[in-house]
């Protein structure tokens, strides 16, 4: 056999082995326990969940209040968002232990883990900025603090975007993989998908950010931190009626709920007028978005 032929065969074998390796990596079932364990761990170490984070951030916000007060509200918004994200993660963690391994869990496995890695990376950058600000003893504080906030805000927006993808993935796992009994029902599915809509709007929003955040936070506190309505849904004709109405929104108005969330301005949801409301769908949806639907 000629030398060239030998090399060709060797190369072909190497390529074949590489192809087999890639196929195995892609097609072998993933251990979904990795996602459950990671989500649990992340809840404890997420931004502002440790005393160290809190002390550094409080110090930063105090400096912003003194030297760059126009950013004070933005800094408080970032705090509210951080707590809200962990509240939603806490809800998923309470239920992930019961999630079955199926196609949805397999397809969201990489989404969740990769985005948790990005979240950790942005958290590292944010914490580095906070430590730098904490150690700063130079002059011209207003310029320095303003610059530091702008750097921090950039990292925080990326952090929010990646965390939103994590929670979107976990939301899909929750809906498709956690057994549907009394407490995981049509209302919980609606809450989970709407929660993701709220986060997506916050990730993209430049206008009305504070007012959207206020409503999102209320939504989380009323339906996710307190799960009373989820628990009562199966026994409540009233709640079933409201959910049935809200679920007609997309087919009647030919838009998704995100359009309604984007219309939040101040304390008002300004999407269309009540006069145009078919069968009270919009009334129910607006009440739901504001945490006003009860069993």
């Amino acid at each position: 056999m000629s030398k060239a032929k030998k090399w060709t065969i060797a190369l072909a074998v190497i390529v074949l082995i590489a192809v087999i390796a890639v196929v195995l990596i892609v097609c072998l079932p993933k251990n979904v326990q990795d996602v459950k364990d990671r989500a649990f761990k992340e809840q404890e170490i997420s931004f502002l969940q440790t005393d160290e984070d809190l002390n550094l951030y409080n110090s930063f916000v105090s400096k912003i209040e003194k030297d760059a007060p126009s950013y004070k509200q933005d800094a408080e918004n970032a705090r509210t968002v951080s707590y809200m994200l962990v509240n939603v993660l806490d809800f998923y963690n309470d239920n992930l232990v019961f999630a079955k391994d199926n196609n949805t869990f397999q397809s969201e496995y990489r989404v969740v883990l990769d985005n948790f890695n990005k979240v950790n990376s942005y958290e590292k950058s944010m914490r580095a900025i906070l430590k730098e600000v904490n150690d700063y003893v130079g002059s011209d504080a207003p310029t320095y603090i303003t610059g530091s906030w702008q750097k921090f805000e950039k990292e925080f927006k990326n952090y929010l975007a990646s965390y939103t993808k994590v929670l979107d993935g976990l939301g899909k796992v929750y809906i498709d993989c956690v057994p549907k009994g009394i407490n995981n029902n049509a209302f919980t599915s609606l809450v989970v998908t709407t929660m993701t809509d709220y986060l997506n709007v916050l990730t993209d929003a430049t206008e009305n950010y504070s007012s959207v955040l206020t409503k999102a936070n209320t939504f989380v506190n009323r339906y996710i931190v307190t799960t009373t309505n989820m628990q009562k849904y199966e026994f409540s004709d009233k709640l079933k009626g409201e959910v049935a109405k809200i679920n007609k929104f997309a087919s009647v108005y030919k838009e998704n709920i995100t359009a309604v969330i984007k219309s939040i301005n101040g304390s008002q949801i300004t999407y269309k007028t009540i006069d145009a409301d078919k069968d009270g769908i919009l009334v129910s949806l607006k009440s739901f978005l504001e945490g006003g639907i009860n069993a």
């Binding site: 232990v97 057994p179 549907k180 009994g181 009394i182 029902n185």
Partner: peptide, 15 residues
């Protein structure tokens, strides 16, 4: 229907 859904909760309780 409720009894069937409660069975799902009972399975999680057993775990």
């Amino acid at each position: 229907q409720i009894e069937n859904k409660l069975k799902v909760e009972r399975d999680m309780l057993e775990k």
